[in-house]
Design a protein around this nucleic acid. Structure first.
Lengths: 212, 212
DNA sequence: GTCTATAGATCGATAGAC
DNA sequence: GTCTATCGATCTATAGAC
């Protein structure tokens, strides 16, 4: 694959499309799809509205392109990172590394913002929810499942259904923190609290699945 | 407390305010705040737009009133219900009852819809997120914490931090199911899958916190 | 309180010149 | 491709009659 089909033929100035995408990301993620206007996005990007429509066919298309870009930028190398960080023999350390990775991405202000708008609009644009799921949560699930299966094969864990167990681990980390972030009760995670939540999730997980 | 202050003085016809609230709930929860219009809500309620504004000062006020009503209707008797269903001595049965209650409310189509719009708009209207949290997740947390503390007091469970443990239990039940519901990948929960997820959460929880 | 009619503002999208 | 200017539709909110 060479270039996105939405890219114009000439890329001499080259900056405008990216400027629009960046401005769209900032506004959409802050106020949502409905409250964001093409006028404001164009002005914020330093271009005219006609230029915006020269690169993106509609507001919906711009929104979708911005989400694809943002999701890839934030969650692109997720599985490779986990594979590298959780490669050792120490199961607790591996789980901790996975937990930290998840917190750093999904619970970051940017991760929360993108999840928020996707959840908000996925009722009207179902393909957005599907695309996001395939590129973020699904990738994470597969990575964790692979990690857990390897540990089971080595006899380090005893798990009936590694897929469900992985979901349980992620769910325990999210806990109430994720709800408070999504509802705007807190803007950012307290690093100490995050570390504590991860540690307790690892502890509960190992207490349940470690060989007796 | 007698009547809401937003209620008009005369309640002779009485039906119009409730009709508007009902229509607003249906539309807001289906398409979100931005895509819902006061015209459509008024027509759907069988009244004029002026009547809508006679009862609710603005679109935002109608949205907030609808959320308050909807949250109370759906999660109102949450703690009393849990207290009743999980009163017995059987810990596994109590956890199962809590899990089923949670699934029936938070994972129902209506529960998902209301959570979706609150998450979507809580960035711009922070008080909505706070109000929802206090009336639903927070109540559930307190109920579960009470249940777990009682079990610990009786020596049926060994838990350092019952609050975190409760969050972990709920998080395990949500698992990947909740994500797929919020992203619109599935419309409703498969009852068999829900029962399986609950059962496995109970199993993992007891494996970790049952006395040795 | 409830209606009809409309003001006033904004928004998505495009026409036409360069 | 990029600009300015604008169209046409839609939306929130209100004025005025009953």
């Amino acid at each position: 694959m060479s270039k996105s089909s939405a890219r114009p033929l000439s890329d001499a100035p080259a900056g405008k499309r990216e400027a629009v995408l960046k401005a769209a990301g900032a506004l959409f993620l802050q106020v949502g799809f409905g409250a964001a206007s093409m006028d404001v996005i164009a002005r914020s990007a330093g271009v005219s509205k006609a230029t915006v429509y020269a690169h993106f066919a509609s507001k919906e298309a711009l929104f979708a392109a911005m989400l694809e870009e943002g999701t890839r930028a934030r969650f692109g190398d997720l599985d490779a990172d986990i594979e590298a960080d959780a490669a050792g023999d120490d199961i607790a350390a591996g789980l901790r590394a996975i937990g930290r990775k998840f917190v750093a991405m999904a619970l970051s202000p940017g991760g929360i913002a993108i999840y928020r708008v996707v959840v908000a609009e996925s009722a009207r644009f179902p393909e957005l929810g599907r695309a996001f799921y395939d590129n973020a949560p699904s990738v994470m699930r597969d990575s964790i499942e692979r990690f857990l299966k390897r540990a089971v094969r080595r006899g380090q864990l005893v798990i009936d259904d590694p897929r469900i167990a992985g979901d349980q681990f992620v769910g325990m980390i999210k806990g109430d923190l994720y709800v408070r972030l999504l509802l705007g009760l807190i803007d950012e995670i307290n690093p100490a609290e995050a570390e504590q939540v991860i540690e307790q999730a690892v502890h509960t997980f190992l207490a349940a699945f470690r060989p007796r």
